[in-house]
Amino acid sequence: MVRHALLQLKPRKGQIRRNLDHLQQALLALRDEGVDVAVTPEAYPTGYFLQGGVRELALEAAELEDRLGGWHAEHYQKPLDLVIGFYERDGGSYYNTAAYLELGGRGLVHRHRKIFLPTYGVFDEERFLDRGHELASFDTRFGRAAILICEDFWHTVTASIAALQGAEIVYVPSASPARGFHDRTPANVERWETLARAVSGEHGLYVALASLVGSEAGKLMSGGSLLAGPEGEVLARAPEFEEAVLLADVDTERIPPVRYDNPMLADLKAGLPLIFPELRRIVEEL
């Protein structure tokens, strides 16, 4: 069992020091809970909507690792893994990134740079950010994982690739402004749950969604973080709009029997050579 804490936190816009302190307080409050992996939402240290402020507030991955690593060393005897979404500066490029940090261990294990930058409606990411170009699963202390950031996960082909690369859990930091108030739950929250259940059920893996909360100048980040299990079931669900910590266990030993009963991933692998030429043709015609 791998104890996860999905941290549905509300940052103050641009207040990195304060927000990291808030994160650390939240983690310290969980010290007796045996948390192995904690996950923050997308762009947590700064808030999501920054426009050109990305240039002033983006962090280098090493800088973030140093700050959190130093804090961890002061307070923990054992390693703690942290998936943290942040705006990353790398030379003259800026990315919407999430890092997998093994604090008190290997440090920066993996970094995923968001590939699908929403630039429509209320979103304007590609005006201010560069796209990531890699999607890779990676090994953690607890198994094989992948990270997809927000819209990355809305294209289910990305999770399929992660699953084909062996991912047993997909971490999804997100920042999702509430929209669609026609039903009891905001439509975007419903959509997230539908996606998480479909992806986890199709591939027999866990999906850990950590979703931002707080009003960013009227854009109400919706929360609704959740953990979905390999049979497509929601194992834990956070409330909408308010700060919450979702504590839930991931049992990767459940994955082989579930995949045996529902061998969609194996079937996908077997069928890939049949559909790959079509994919290649589509790409070549772009």
């Binding site: 103050r12 509430a178 108030f181 026609h182 009891r184 707080g214 100048a217 109400l220 709009f241």
Partner: peptide
């Protein structure tokens, strides 16, 4: 297209908006 809203959800979200925008 529908204009009808779930007014419980809407009221709750707008109350939170007022509180958070003021507090911020």
């Amino acid at each position: 297209e529908v204009l009808d809203l779930d007014y419980r959800l809407t009221a709750s979200a707008l109350e939170r908006f007022v509180r958070e925008e003021l507090n911020g």
